[in-house]
Design a protein around this nucleic acid. Structure first.
Lengths: 131, 131
DNA sequence: TCAGTTGTCCGTAAAATATGAACTATGGAA
DNA sequence: TTCCATAGTTCATATTTTACGGACAACTGA
């Protein structure tokens, strides 16, 4: 029984939704992948990101994350030989939803910076308030 | 057996995460609620939003949506008599993640405007490309 | 043809979500 | 008080989504 390789799905720019983008980027692994990809100057393969995110992530899971990013319209993937070249679609998305991705990427960097150098707190700890 | 009413959880501003915000706003109902709340000048009750979103939404589901928004740090809820007064925490979040919520709200409005007046297409339809 | 590499597909287990029914909490009327 | 209506929550369960191991597909170079 031969299982065929399904073609890659890239939504056209006008069917991309805000909800889809937010959902795709609401996962820590995916937003890390996307941020790295947006920072890179050139197309990158999937396995590149094993070094960016936790190395222990299974490759089937990583593959699913790429699919989610792709089908949300955030990235474009193209098979190049045995590997996959990925690029962001930030240009298109910027036209349709101006400022959205830059703002998310900026917030992501703010949060990353805090993790590296935790801000001193005024209160004992940043716990949730129950009131 | 008396089931106590649990206290409302409001995360402190420095434990709010970008992922949490994006996840909370990646649901069409929740983003509609949040957008309406951000547009309103004053605090609003939960049931107000039965008119904003689909009227057929069960109230238990609506309650869960408010909890999600609250625990992501997007809104503050306060019991006032028999009802609940909700306000956004956009001021705090703007300080921590400048520009994030405005960009998301803007993209949301862009998308809403398209739905009202669908843009004429250059291609027959905005379908996904398989390539 | 064979082996190595990159990534996908599928089945199942685990986690998240939706929702009806029962309940809490509050306020007002009888 | 007691009773009732209203606003929202909690719980149990059904459905949906997600994670991931293992088998496989697609390609390359020897």
């Amino acid at each position: 029984m031969l299982r065929a390789m399904k073609p890659l799905i890239h939504p056209s720019i006008d069917t991309i939704t805000v909800e889809g983008i937010l959902h795709a980027l609401s996962d820590p692994v995916r937003v890390a992948i996307y941020a790295d990809m947006a920072g890179a100057g050139c197309a990158q393969t999937c396995s590149t990101f094993l070094q960016v995110v936790d190395r222990s992530i299974p490759k089937s899971t990583l593959s699913q994350h790429f699919r989610t990013l792709r089908e949300a319209g955030l990235i474009r993937s193209e098979r190049q030989g045995v590997e996959m070249l990925n690029t962001t679609r930030c240009g298109e998305i910027e036209q349709r939803f101006p400022g959205l991705l830059p703002a998310i990427m900026h917030a992501h960097r703010v949060q990353l910076a805090e993790k590296v150098r935790p801000a001193r707190r005024s209160a004992p700890a940043g716990k949730a308030r129950a009131d």
